[in-house]
């Protein structure tokens, strides 16, 4: 049960949050220009990293804000949390 430091509300219990998968997959600006392969890459393909992963979380039962998290998926240690739109730290 994670203890997640929502950038807007502070530390809250895991139960209040929803995970939103890999972060920094930007929705293509011009989807119609993409091949089926490229579109599938955006739609379905995921790094699914074992180790340091950048991902999106939502304080669903709280402020409803989305934010980013850096987490080690091998042991679930949360390394960093930062707001949407902020640049990810260098890996």
């Amino acid at each position: 049960m994670f203890l997640i430091n929502c950038p807007y509300c502070g530390e809250r219990d895991h139960q209040e949050f929803k995970a939103g998968g890999e972060a920094h997959i930007e929705r293509p600006k011009q989807p119609t220009e993409l091949s089926d392969d490229e579109w599938a890459e955006y739609l379905f393909m995921r790094k699914n990293i074992k180790g340091i992963q950048f991902e999106r979380w939502n304080h669903a039962h709280g402020c409803r804000k989305w934010f980013n998290m850096v987490r080690d998926t091998s042991n679930d240690q949360i390394k960093l949390i930062y707001k949407m739109g902020e640049k990810p730290p260098a890996e």
Binding site: M1, H14, Q15, A19, E22, K50, Q53, R71, T73, D76
Partner: peptide, 14 residues
């Protein structure tokens, strides 16, 4: 299942 990626072989109590 939980909704987040994890390789820790642990899930949440909820």
């Amino acid at each position: 299942t939980d909704d987040y990626v994890s390789y820790s072989q642990k899930g949440s109590h909820q």
